[in-house]
Nucleic acid binder design. Sequence first.
DNA 1: TTGTAGGCGTTATCAT
DNA 2: ATGATAACGCCTACAA
Lengths: 336, 336
Amino acid sequence: MTIKDLAEATGYAVGTVSRALNGHPNVSEKARAVILEAAQKSGFQFNTNAKQLKQIHSNAIIVVVKGVGNELFGEMVETIQHSLSRTKYQLLVDYLDEDLNEVTRALQLCRERKPRGVLFLGGNNQNFIQDFAAIDVPCVLVTSDGSKLPFPNLSSVTTDDLEAARCGIETLIAMGHRQIAVIGGDPSISDTSRLRLEGCMAAFAAHDIPFDPRRDYQSGRYSWQNGYEAVQTLLRGGLRYTAIFAAADVMAIGAIRALWEYGLRVPQDVSVMGVDGLPLGSYLVPQLSTVVQDGARLANRGLTILLESIEQGKKARHETVPFRVAKRESIREIPI
Amino acid sequence: MTIKDLAEATGYAVGTVSRALNGHPNVSEKARAVILEAAQKSGFQFNTNAKQLKQIHSNAIIVVVKGVGNELFGEMVETIQHSLSRTKYQLLVDYLDEDLNEVTRALQLCRERKPRGVLFLGGNNQNFIQDFAAIDVPCVLVTSDGSKLPFPNLSSVTTDDLEAARCGIETLIAMGHRQIAVIGGDPSISDTSRLRLEGCMAAFAAHDIPFDPRRDYQSGRYSWQNGYEAVQTLLRGGLRYTAIFAAADVMAIGAIRALWEYGLRVPQDVSVMGVDGLPLGSYLVPQLSTVVQDGARLANRGLTILLESIEQGKKARHETVPFRVAKRESIREIPI
DNA sequence: TTGTAGGCGTTATCAT
DNA sequence: ATGATAACGCCTACAA
């Protein structure tokens, strides 16, 4: 079923059919009605390829999701898909492993699909510095700060990772904790991990609490398993901590399990706090204390900025979305 | 940069360039080398739209994921993306809400993108009966049984949901439980939910254990929240159960939380068992007992069947993938 | 207002 | 082995 068939069926010429179908002017009401009617009941669909052949780019928006296991990103993809479903844009979601280069991947996708814009869920500044220059459509980096990057077509929306981690640690300190271990991602690979670690260290420094990353920090991927293993490594060192701060809820959950297996109860023996604010956290026993990132808001702001760049040519912006510390059952005050 | 430019640059005709670039026969080694070289250093990229315009269909494979929050599906999408990344096929992942019609959605996508095949992650037979006839590419329905459907281009790979649930309940019964409540999806909407409920009832019937769905079954979506609420509803009824069987791990986790808030401990006061075998379950305290579906295997078999249908024209098959009951910490024997 | 024709980048079918 | 050329489905001047 093509517009040619439609033309034949209605007796109009392809040009008229095309104009009618696309809502262009210079089509009589009658013709439009007849053609739309025919299209309707023949189940006509445009051939996107043919339609876009002529155009510089498609109406696709690509979402590049870095880190397949990231629960927060899952939520955000849903939000984005939902928001976009009522627009003319088509969503194209691409997942890639945490250690791959999201920018070269995006570049490849851009060449192939000629999208109107790209949304990065997670990303690494280093990769952007190296390879982003070749991408010319509007892009938004979500959950990673791009304000230091000099690209006019790259915006970013992020939670202030450093501050979020700092507040998390401050909360623990305010409750009397002094011996705090931190588990998180590899700071040499991930900006987010680095910032969160720095935030922790800033808090420790402000209170003159000794913290040696080589001893008190364990890194791994953001996964249940790695949280579990990180704590095992820490405890194997023989040191005692009254609290563990995990730079991701998933790690915190693995951490709690590892503590349990060592005979340590949460929060009675050790307090545990995460970062992300996964909905799951509220349903655990004990409920997970966490620094809540507003995933829906990150996603929506990111999308809004992207669409404004695409449609109104607005220039790149770098925004921060607020977070909040949720004190729940997995932490407790240390009696002095 | 088009193949035309490339032809001009190398002195060959567009036809030759096209053949060389696509690895077709009837191109001299010399020509191929020259052309590939030129393409290389000019950064040539095919125009996908133009390429696919001529072809009946693209090289896309569409994955329609039903139920955005489904953790198991998330895993499976990863697996599929991974397997497909080294092939010529492009993946197109589409998420839709649990209560939307996945078949009409797929039909629309088929018309738009002309994929080589479609993989349904979750689906409802009723929708297929109504609307599937219009889809003509090979499809595989994963996690839902399509063997009763009369379509020659629809395969399915599934865990035997009825049997899985039956085995779960049998396990509880073998441990001495007689008062068992079941929570799960809406059996009138979801085939999977219906089969799981039937499996439970079969087990109860086999042991002459009274079970009244109106009293002992609570349905909701597969989510933490709905598991939590389902148990609240059950307990509000004033009845006492020694075990709760949840037709999804996510619901089981919400259930445990709700029990806790009622002062009931798992497994001391109430045993809880789920279905799905989410990796998360092993990291909880207590570790969640569950009927493990082999997500990776479901995904891989589904993909294999789809590719065989596409490439070798093999006819539709309906397979079952084994499950296993994982007895972990959330259940205990009832002393007689 | 409507029809006609050329072109978008590629593949495929012919000749050569 | 290579080259010329006609599709593919749609849009858009331009002509009527």
